[in-house]
Design a protein around this nucleic acid. Sequence first.
RNA 1: CGGGGCGUAGCGCAGCCCGGUAGCGCAUCUGCUUUGGGAGCAGAGGGUCGCAGGUUCAAAUCCUGUCGCCCCGACCA
Length: 489
Amino acid sequence: MAKKITSRDNDYSQWYLDIIKEAGLAEHSPVRGCMVIKPTGFALWENMRDVLDRMFKETGHQNAYFPLFIPKSFLSKEAQHVEGFAKECAVITHSRLINSEDGVDVDPSSKLEEELIVRPTSETIIWDTYRNWVQSHRDLPILINQWANVVRWEMRTRLFLRTMEFLWQEGHTAHATKEEAVQETEQMLEVYRTFAEEYMAMPVITGVKTESERFAGAVETYCIEALMQDGKALQAGTSHFLGQNFAKAFDVKFQDKDNTVKHVWATSWGVSTRLIGGLIMTHSDDDGLVLPPKIAPVQVAIVPIWKSDDDQQAVLDYAKGVQKELQSKGIRTKLDARDQYKPGWKFAQYEVEGVPLRIAVGPRDVQNNKAEIARRDTRSKEIVERDSLVGKVESLLDEIQNNLYDTAKERMATRTSTVSTYEEFKEILDSKGGFIYAHWDGTAETETKVKEETKATIRCIPLHSDNEPGKCMVTGKPSARKVLFARAY
RNA sequence: CGGGGCGUAGCGCAGCCCGGUAGCGCAUCUGCUUUGGGAGCAGAGGGUCGCAGGUUCAAAUCCUGUCGCCCCGACCA
């Protein structure tokens, strides 16, 4: 058996790339920093999207779509926002090509009067639009989400974790009061936390960002932070309270019940295909991808085994019966009856692809009215009675989902430390990495010093942790509470 | 954008130093035998050696440029 996947201990980055390649999730495109998301990878994204979309709608949001192109002038309206995104915008300057000796060239005569920006995020065009939608408090709140692609001209890219073009959803809401907007921000953070933990089986820490890590244009950025197997943190989702910054920049006002004119309060929130990278690095092992059942494109792969033609017919009929029954329970099932691959090859392949459960049925099983069922997460196998097979599958899928979460949760706990001195901090960072709780004096200077000296950043000020005051590990100045440090992706 | 590594068949690589008919393994195709953990034998197809210039009788090989990928830094979801 040819091992195609580099081990995590040997080279974690290469392992990550090998997983993506061997599981067929994505590949590099001819364009630098961009990727082709292959059917399996996209099916994963579709499942994530479907769950999130349902959760957004359950919390009262509607989908809409805003343009890919944003007038350049819009970007300059919110000062902080421009500063944050100016360095990574793709700019459209011309509208035509002309034939040339070497193929085609940009037609100089087609220069645009106002250049267009390919959206790095849609706040500006959305707030420009909302201005026309809001007059009265009766028009509020506006609760809109869009599924879209965005472009950020990154210097260094990694499949899923950071690509120049990526898929995401961005929610943009407008509210009459600050309290309502803050509540919305927190609600969506909670949606993300629930999604990450219950569907992705990815435990996260919720918190707020420090000023230096905050979204450009936000008053407060809430986030969910996950911990990867190599001890590095990954920002997995953000929810921003935008205050009235965009409302003021784009002049979005309403007449309130008290007959005065006010600016609206805003939020925005998003998760992206980066989550797929996080998913890979949370659960997968040296044998390939490992997927939580709730979002796995295929939950059960059925591998039929036969020797003679007679066997083949009987086995296939039996396997089809199993598949039909599983499908009737809403279980995503794939029956792999291809004859060009041997069962052993298929077993290995579905392990690489991370399919949570595999059922093997052969002549013996048909005869005895049984089937072999194997788990991807624990690699355990057992023979079960045909009559109890579907029930067993259902309970095993639940078990796998829970086991993946519990394992990840435990790993996070093991790799979370609390320190009181900077020496201890550096020592732990280098020895085991992970999340480190420590006191911080609240200044950007200290944060920068730690970042420069250790490459660790403050991932967040956790929402749920003890609020015991103490002394900053670096300066000894008073600190209201411990914050969460880590090296991050 | 700086430092390091790498681009040769779909994938993984050798050949390059020392220029002279482009190779190996896997995969693919055909046939037969196989099928409960990545099958065996026999035969076959597939490459403008990343791209563009240059040196040379002759370039995968030497020179210059350029593009892309990976790793490490500065930027980021």
